[in-house]
Amino acid sequence: MIVEIHFQEGFSNEKAQLLVDGEVVEEFFLNTRFQLGMAAIKKVDAVRGTKVQVALPDRSIKQPVPVSHPYVKVSLEDGKLTVSPTDQMPGYV
């Protein structure tokens, strides 16, 4: 299924990587747009059992992303990534 990863608060010119089964499939820079509280939305096609991870290489952070829900919210808070899966499509205004 398609999992939407929503990068939300706390990113400022942050280099990020999306990894599937250990392979970097995408590398990008994240900047939170304050007026939305959102930096980027990335889609991953993942079957159950696929290992999806988000990495911030400049901070040596690598965090698994559950693929149990259609949406995953990811924020950077106090130098740590918080990852919260949800069934509810995150909305921005």
């Binding site: 939305l36 939305i41 499509m89 205004v93």
Partner: peptide, 8 residues
């Protein structure tokens, strides 16, 4: 952005 953006 799609359906998830209500306004900006």
């Amino acid at each position: 952005t799609g359906y998830g953006l209500g306004g900006v």
